[in-house]
Design a protein around this nucleic acid. Structure first.
Lengths: 256, 256
DNA sequence: CGCGATTTGTGCACCTGTTCACAAGCGCCT
DNA sequence: AGGCGCTTGTGAACAGGTGCACAAATCGCG
C-alpha cells in the first residue's frame, strides 16, 4: 500500500508518529515482540534480525517484518533492527511511555492474585486502587493497597485518571461493575468474569476466561485421541493414515 | 458443503460423531455458546433461536448459525435450537463428556488462585495434582490438594491420565516444566508464564499473558486519546480531555 | 388443508491476515 | 571502488473468517 508517512500529513507534532491504525492482529503481537526485545536488550544485544526476533517471539519472520513495517519502523537492510530503538518505537505505539493506572474490582480468589502479580508493575502498569462489594473484604490491605468499597469508585476516579478497569468479580456482578466503570469514564476493560459484557460504543473490552482456554484444549485433546484411535483399529476410507504420529499440522497453536 | 455425516463412516462406534475438523475460530467460540446455553437451561428455556443465543454469547447470529452448522447440528427451522440437545452436542464435540484431569505446576501467586478457582470444577475439569519446585511450598495443602515436588510428576502421571498441564511458574522455569510435562505424555498445555514455549509437534500450547492483555488495551486507550485530542485542539500531543465519548468504532473487541 | 410467519442453513462476496518470493538497500571485504 | 552476501520491506497470491441475503424447511392457525 502507500499510506506510509504522508510527508505533509495533517499537522501532527513531530514526536507522536501519527498512529497509522495498525491491523488488530499486529497490535496483539507487538507486546510479545516487546517482551522478546527486552530480553535481548538485557542480554546485551544491540541489533537483531527479523529471523532472530521472530524466533524469540514465536512467530514467522515474514509476519514480523510486515508487522514492524506497519509502524513505519526503521530496520537496516543487511543488518537488522536496533533493539533499543525498536523498544522505544513499540512502547510509543502501545502508549506505554506513560505509566497507566489500573483499577481492579473484585478481590476474591483471582483478584487477590492479580493484585499481587508483579508482572503488571514491571510492564508499566500501576494498580491504583482495589475495590470489592463484600463488606468483609473492605479495609483489607493487599500488597500495600487498601481494598475500598466499590461505591467509592467515583471519588477515587476523580482523584486520578484511571486508564483501565479490571473486573475479577463473579459473573453476576460483572455487568454492574462494568457499568460503574464506564460511568466514571473508563474506556478499556479487562474482564475475567465468565460472561458477556455490554458496553457503549467506544469502550474496549477484552475477555480472559480460563475455563474457555481449557475447553479449547480439551477439544484438541479429544480430536487427537480419536485420530490416534482410528488407525489402530484398521479404519477404512476416511482418515488416510498419515503414517505415524507426527501426523497433523496443528503444532504450536499460540493464539487465538 | 456436504461433509455432514458420512452414513457409512469408517468403523467408529456410533457414539463419537466423527469430528469434521471444525474451523479454529469456531472451536474458540463453542465454549462461549456452551456457557450461554447452560444459562438458558438454568432459566428453564427449552429452545432458543440463533438470534437469542447469539445475543447471549455476544456474537453475530449468522456467525453462530454457521458455527453450529459446522458440527452438523440439528436446529429446527421456524423454531430454533433445542437447548438440551445442543448442550450435549457441543460438550460431545469439545470432549467434555469425560471429566478431564489437570495438573497445575507453580503454586505461586497466580497458581494459588487457579488452584482455588471453582470455575474449573464447574466446567468439568478436575485439578488432579499441584506441583512446585520451591521446597517451602511442598506439603502445603490448597483447597484439599497437596502440593508435590515437580520431580514426582512422573509418578503421579503414571497413576492417572493427565489431560492438560497448566504452567503458572515464573518465566525462567516454564520451558523446563513444559519439557517435563511433555515427557510424561501431556499433549495440551495452558501457559501463564510470559515466555514462548517450544514443544514438539502434536503438542498444543495456549498462552494467557495478563500483561499482554493490558498492553493491547493500552494501545487502544492511546489511540482513542490521540483521536479525541486531534479534532479538539490543534495543539500539542498528550493528555486528552475526555470530550466526546461515543468516538470510534472499535466497540466490543472480544478477542482472540 | 393450505398459507403465512418464522427461523435455519448456506452460497457468495468481501475483508482481514498469512505466507511466499524477490527486488532494493546496506555494510564489509577485497 | 566495486562486488558480494545479508537483511529488510513489500507486492501478490493464498487462506481463513465474516456477514449478507435468500431459499428451504417447519410450525401454527384459520
Amino acid at each position: 500500500m502507500s499510506q506510509h508517512r504522508h510527508p505533509g500529513a495533517p499537522g501532527r507534532a513531530g514526536a507522536v508518529p501519527a498512529l497509522p491504525d495498525l491491523p488488530e492482529a499486529t497490535v496483539a503481537r507487538l507486546p510479545e515482540y516487546l517482551r522478546a526485545l527486552h530480553a535481548l536488550a538485557d542480554a546485551g544485544d544491540e541489533t537483531v534480525s527479523s529471523e532472530g526476533l521472530a524466533n524469540a517471539a514465536g512467530v514467522n519472520s515474514a509476519k514480523l517484518r510486515k508487522d514492524l513495517s506497519h509502524l513505519g519502523s526503521y530496520g537496516t537492510r543487511g543488518v537488522g533492527y536496533d533493539v533499543a530503538l525498536l523498544i522505544d518505537q513499540i512502547e510509543s505505539v502501545l502508549g506505554l511511555t506513560q505509566c497507566r493506572s489500573v483499577a481492579l474490582v473484585g478481590v476474591g480468589n483471582l483478584g487477590h492474585a492479580l493484585a499481587g502479580y508483579d508482572g503488571f508493575a514491571s510492564r508499566g502498569f500501576r494498580i491504583a486502587a482495589l475495590f470489592d462489594a463484600d463488606p468483609v473484604r473492605i479495609g483489607e490491605e493487599i500488597n500495600g493497597l487498601l481494598v475500598r468499597h466499590i461505591d467509592e469508585l467515583p471519588r477515587v476516579a476523580a482523584d486520578e485518571l484511571i486508564s483501565i478497569g479490571v473486573i475479577a468479580t463473579p459473573a453476576p456482578a460483572a455487568q454492574s461493575v462494568a457499568d460503574q466503570l464506564v460511568a466514571v469514564g473508563v474506556t478499556s476493560i479487562l474482564n475475567f468474569a465468565p460472561c458477556v459484557l455490554s458496553v457503549p460504543e467506544g469502550v474496549d473490552v477484552r475477555k480472559v476466561d480460563l475455563a474457555i482456554e481449557l475447553q479449547i484444549l480439551s477439544f484438541h485433546e479429544h480430536r487427537k485421541a480419536s485420530l490416534t484411535a482410528l488407525p489402530a483399529t484398521g479404519g477404512s476410507a476416511l482418515t488416510a493414515l498419515p503414517g505415524g504420529l507426527t501426523a497433523t499440522d496443528t503444532q504450536e497453536a499460540i493464539g487465538t
